[in-house]
Amino acid sequence: MLIVHCPHCGVQADETELTNGGQAHLRRFGPGSSDAEFEAYMFARKNPKGVHFERWRHSYGCGKWFIAARCTATLEVFGTYPAQTTEPPAAIIATIKKRRPEWEGSE
């Protein structure tokens, strides 16, 4: 059972206080998008063994969404940051590259 740091309220939250929201940094495709774009947005999800960016909500705490960069194989958490961003912050990327030199980039 994971513990993940909530960047909004600073709590080392227990997994039971959190809700997982799946892959982060999706780009929304609405009316006007092609079937392929919409399909990819709705259904095509990454399932990497290794570095992954995922959404979490501190649902039993401050209620805020944040994003965790995590290794799905070792469960190492490289860092968390507020969800109000379209891409991972540079500091998080730097941490991941330091811990996983072979990693080829985010999305």
Binding site: T19, G21, R28, R55, R57, S59, G63, W65, A83, Q84
Partner: peptide
């Protein structure tokens, strides 16, 4: 309520 907050916080912040 969670659905509203999700869109509000993560898409139209």
């Amino acid at each position: 309520h969670a659905h509203m907050e999700d869109w509000l916080q993560c898409e139209w912040w």
